[in-house]
Amino acid sequence: MGPEYSEKKKTPGITAEPCGVPCPIERGMRILGGKWKASILWHLKDEPVRFNELTRQLDGASKKMINQRLTEMERQGLVIRTVLKEKPIAVSYRISTEGRSALHILEALKEWALDKAL
C-alpha cells in the first residue's frame, strides 16, 4: 500500500479527536442501535400502539424479537408499557419523553437515507 492509502481524509468541520470510553456516538448506538429499536420508536411517534399491531407494522421481525427490544427500551426509559387487559393479556406501548427526544435523529436519518441511492 502506498501513502495514498494511509492518509486520513478530513471532513470539513469535523475533528477526529479522541473521545472518552465509550464515546458519545458509541453510547448513542448502544441506546438506538439495537435491531428494530429505531423502527419501534418511529412507529410509536404519533400514538400508542398495541403489541400485535406493532408486530404487523414491523413486518420481518419476530414477536420474540420485538418483545425483547420493547423490554430493553422500557428499561432504558424510551417507551412506556400499559396493560390494557389482564386476561387475555393486552398491552400497548407509547413513546416516552426520553424516547421522543431521539425522534429528530431518526428524522435526519430518514432524510439522509432518502437522498441515497442503493
Results as ranks from 00 to 15, higher is better:
residue 101 S to T: 02
residue 37 K to D: 06
residue 53 E to G: 01
residue 73 M to D: 04
residue 114 L to Y: 09
residue 5 Y to N: 12
residue 117 A to W: 10
residue 7 E to Y: 07
residue 81 R to L: 05
residue 34 G to H: 11
residue 48 P to W: 01
residue 1 M to V: 15
residue 9 K to Q: 15
residue 67 N to P: 00
residue 100 R to N: 06
residue 113 A to M: 14
residue 64 K to S: 15
residue 7 E to F: 08
residue 65 M to I: 06
residue 97 T to E: 14
residue 88 P to H: 10
residue 59 D to L: 11
residue 103 L to I: 11
residue 18 P to I: 11
residue 35 K to R: 13
residue 58 L to P: 08
residue 67 N to S: 11
residue 30 R to Y: 15
residue 55 T to W: 02
residue 10 K to M: 04
residue 21 V to A: 05
residue 13 G to T: 02
residue 51 F to H: 04
residue 40 I to E: 01
residue 48 P to K: 08
residue 36 W to G: 03
residue 31 I to T: 15
residue 45 K to A: 03
residue 50 R to P: 03
residue 26 E to W: 03
residue 77 G to D: 13
residue 7 E to G: 09
residue 36 W to S: 07
residue 9 K to M: 05
residue 86 E to Y: 09
residue 6 S to Q: 11
residue 111 E to R: 10
residue 14 I to P: 03
residue 15 T to N: 12
residue 44 L to D: 05
residue 48 P to M: 00
residue 47 E to G: 05
residue 15 T to G: 11
residue 92 S to E: 09
residue 107 E to P: 00
residue 62 S to M: 00
residue 27 R to A: 07
residue 104 H to G: 05
residue 115 D to Y: 02
residue 74 E to W: 04
residue 93 Y to S: 03
residue 118 L to N: 09
residue 62 S to E: 01
residue 63 K to L: 03
residue 30 R to V: 03
residue 51 F to N: 01
residue 28 G to E: 14
residue 46 D to E: 13
residue 87 K to W: 07
residue 11 T to W: 00
residue 108 A to E: 10
residue 94 R to M: 06
residue 61 A to Q: 02
residue 104 H to W: 12
residue 47 E to C: 06
residue 34 G to N: 08
